[in-house]
Amino acid sequence: MSWLINLSGLALMALIVWWFWLAGAGKARRATHGAVDIIVDDGVYEPAVIESNAGEPLSLRFERRDASPCAEQVVFHGLDVSEYLPVGETTTVTLTPEQPGTYRFTCQMNMYQGKLIVH
């Protein structure tokens, strides 16, 4: 009996590691005509992974539905871009990533997490 509990505990830990760190981060959304609509609600950006090409202007329209202060701001790490998202409104963030790479965009506290993959 006890080996079963230990084994399932270890399996659970392996599952956590695999799911949150090793498995892919879900489907990416390619920007169509340089624009993507992103819904900010319930602790996630939807879609959370955006693909784009280097040098192309990108406008991300964030619609914030979550009134909790966590969602208040979106920060693009490594791009020096941040924007306030007034609750109940759509805020457009325009940026042109020049260097290919993966840029994280998060709320101030890193609870909302998204990725911008630039090819």
């Binding site: 879900g26 909302y112 997490q113």
Partner: peptide, 19 residues
């Protein structure tokens, strides 16, 4: 409810947060 909804949505995105 907000915690559970948030947790579930984050989980689907391979994310984990305070919720």
């Amino acid at each position: 409810r907000p915690f559970f909804v948030g947790a579930w949505k984050a989980l689907r995105h391979h994310n984990a947060n305070m919720d």
